[in-house]
Nucleic acid binder design. Structure first.
Length: 620
DNA sequence: CACGAGCGCGCC
DNA sequence: AGGGCGCGCTCGTG
């Protein structure tokens, strides 16, 4: 079999290529890192794989093409069955190259084939495009091929049908039944062409920095490609496995708060009572579901409120307020996570959402359906391990400030990095040991808070941690100027829109009216807050992607352990009880590995706190 | 009537 | 007065 010594996308080789940073984060200069390494154990077989559409048995056959060291095809493409794919996987553990994980790994996994590693072309293209000034262009292999041949790129196909159509008891729907022509699935030659082109473009990043002021560290970028590709696999696996969810416990929680399930078209009893009390308190009928109505009601009493957000209502002294707040809380539970949600999203003891790794501009994951990243704390009691199993819930403590330590290299902040609780350590200096103050101040700097009581606290931070604050200010200034920013691994922000540029230019022009000027300044500052946060939130997403993909690798040794949930800086593994301690250890070990890989040479730490529990509600 | 913008709130 | 989301509601518009 061929070996492939240039192991792009090999996490361990990315480590070899990743020289220590000079501590200035995105200002770091380009490092070496052609991807060469002599490590035999990192050699890998590369196999391009494309689903072969069939009218009847979609995706039971696959076209594959093995590659030589130099990316040239080895032999002829072959058509093989899922069983043969599984055999190839267990014998050679190739890096499978495919267009996108949902489209290829989804049906493979449904056929019982689990793979270890991949190169996800669409995922990778979405990392490359903004670096080339082509943010938002189509990312599928066909589009890459078209651009190579100076032809118009076809739009990316719509995402595969939601998992609703692939529920147990139903036949999983193939793309083609749903979307018509099989031509939407790239064939093996287009995949190969796109892959080779991506390899070349990634290697060019080393020699040809794209975009003013955007550092290019190819070792880092390859690590990012590897991690995001692995996350693409994890997303498919998590969607399939689902989160253990006990309907009857969820229903008990609903019943306790809302009363029995109401008939369709009516409010739950408790909410109906509250609505009546609200009317009574006002002395006239008010629809608590309508912000406009609520505002008008308070206006009739002579109370003008800007919005009806809970924190604004709380400042109003009126007997209706308490009832409104209670109503809103219950209304939220009822509509977002009530009985209808259970009916739609929980089947056979599992909540299956559709995960979209790196679906957010900053690299965070997104989900479609079920609101999986917004599961309220009050219903987490319904998340229970199966008999004989337990949950390992691990979260990275104070990840974002720790990321700031790492990417800014601020020596004064680094001195606090060993503290178990970063905010407590921070509070000792200038915050009179008030942890909450220190926390709000720190988060405020990373979100671009500009006003409020935190103003004085920001001054304290600027005085004590000038390097870190300069790092954030620099990112904000870039944004205000319409420039791009990148994370430590090279994930690049989207550019501002054309409308943004027009508004800012108009505001800065010599003929600008006062209104144009202030509008221009406002949108520029909005952009600055985005880029300021991007370098932190994005680097945290970089770290989390490496954490997750490292853990996935080590969990292969643990029978029956599944990653069942991931939420920015927290993950959950469902595992046999006997393996729980080992799984907990692995989550910590993976975090240490991620810290070394993503923030090499720095003094930052990114500890995680694994908790073994049968019930998610007990994990805090 | 369908669609979508705006609002508000859940999570990080 | 903050960054990033998804989702369900209301309400105005085509």
């Amino acid at each position: 079999m061929p070996t492939f010594s240039v192991t792009i996308l090999e996490t361990t080789s990315a480590l070899q290529n990743r020289a220590p940073q000079n501590g200035t984060g995105q200002n770091g200069t380009s490092q070496n890192g052609t991807g060469q390494n002599g490590l035999g154990q990192n050699s890998s077989v590369l196999a391009v794989i494309a689903p072969v559409p069939r009218a009847v048995d979609a995706y039971v056959r696959w076209e594959i093409q093995l590659l030589n060291d130099d990316n040239s095809p080895l032999g002829l493409p072959r058509e093989i069955s899922a069983t043969e794919v599984a055999a190839l996987e267990s014998e050679h553990r190739p890096r499978w190259i495919f267009n996108d994980a949902p489209g290829t790994y989804g049906p493979l996994l449904a056929a019982g084939v689990r793979i270890e590693r991949c190169h996800d072309i669409m995922m990778t293209e979405r990392l490359l495009l903004p670096r080339q000034g082509q943010y938002g262009e189509p990312a599928a292999a066909q589009a890459i091929s078209a651009r190579l041949h100076s032809q118009p790129a076809p739009p990316d196909p719509e995402p595969a049908p939601t998992i609703h159509s692939a529920m147990p008891g139903q036949q999983a729907m193939g793309l083609f039944e749903e979307e018509g022509p099989a031509a939407q699935v790239p064939g093996i030659r287009v995949l190969l062409e796109a892959y080779v082109d991506q390899r070349e473009r990634i290697d060019l990043l080393a020699e040809m920095p794209v975009g003013e002021g955007i550092s290019v560290n190819p070792g880092a970028f390859k690590l990012l490609v590897a991690a995001d590709s692995a996350c693409a696999l994890i997303g498919v696996e998590m969607t399939r496995v689902g989160m253990p969810w006990r309907r009857e416990i969820h229903e008990q929680i609903l019943q306790a708060r809302l009363g029995p399930r109401p008939k369709p078209g009516t409010r739950p009893a408790v909410m109906a009572d509250l609505a009546a009390q609200i009317n009574e308190a006002f002395g006239f009928a008010v629809n608590p579901d309508s912000p406009a109505d609520l505002r008008a009601a308070f206006a009739r009493l002579g109370v003008e409120i800007e919005t009806t957000r809970a924190w604004v209502l709380r400042t109003v002294e009126h007997p209706a307020v308490e009832h409104i707040l209670n109503y809103k809380e219950l209304q939220r539970l009822y509509t977002a996570n009530g009985w209808n949600w259970l009916d739609e999203w929980v089947h056979n003891g599992r909540f299956r959402a559709e995960y979209v790794p790196a679906g957010v501009v900053t690299g965070r994951w997104a989900t479609r359906g079920g609101g999986a990243l917004q599961i309220p704390k009050i219903i987490r009691g319904a998340v229970r391990a199966d008999p004989g199993c337990t949950l390992v819930v691990a979260d990275a403590a104070q990840l974002e400030p720790r990321v700031l330590v790492a990417v800014s290299g601020d020596p004064a902040l680094e001195a606090l990095a060993d503290a178990e609780d970063l905010y407590t350590a921070l509070a000792e200096f200038g915050f009179s040991n008030d942890r909450n103050k220190a926390k709000i101040a720190m988060l405020g700097t990373m979100y671009g808070q500009t006003s409020g009581a935190a103003g004085a606290w920001l001054a304290t931070l600027r005085y004590r941690y000038p390097v870190a604050m300069d790092f954030l200010e620099d990112a904000a200034r870039r944004g205000e100027q319409g420039r791009l920013v990148t994370t430590i691994l090279g994930r690049t922000s989207n550019p501002p829109s054309g409308v943004w540029t027009e508004i800012v230019d108009a505001g800065a022009g010599p003929a600008a009216s006062r209104a144009q000027e202030s509008q221009g300044r406002r949108v520029a500052r909005d952009r600055g807050r985005f880029t300021r946060n991007f370098v932190i939130q994005g680097a945290a997403a970089d770290w989390a992607a490496v954490w997750l993909s490292t853990l996935r690798q080590s969990l292969r040794a643990v029978d029956g352990a599944d990653i069942v949930f991931f939420q920015h800086d927290e993950l959950m593994v469902h595992t046999p009880v006997d393996s729980a301690k080992e799984v907990a250890r692995l989550t910590s070990e993976a975090a240490d590995t991620a810290c070394r890989l993503v923030f090499p040479g720095g003094r930052a730490r990114t500890p995680v706190r694994p908790i073994i529990t049968d019930c998610y509600a007990d994990a805090k």
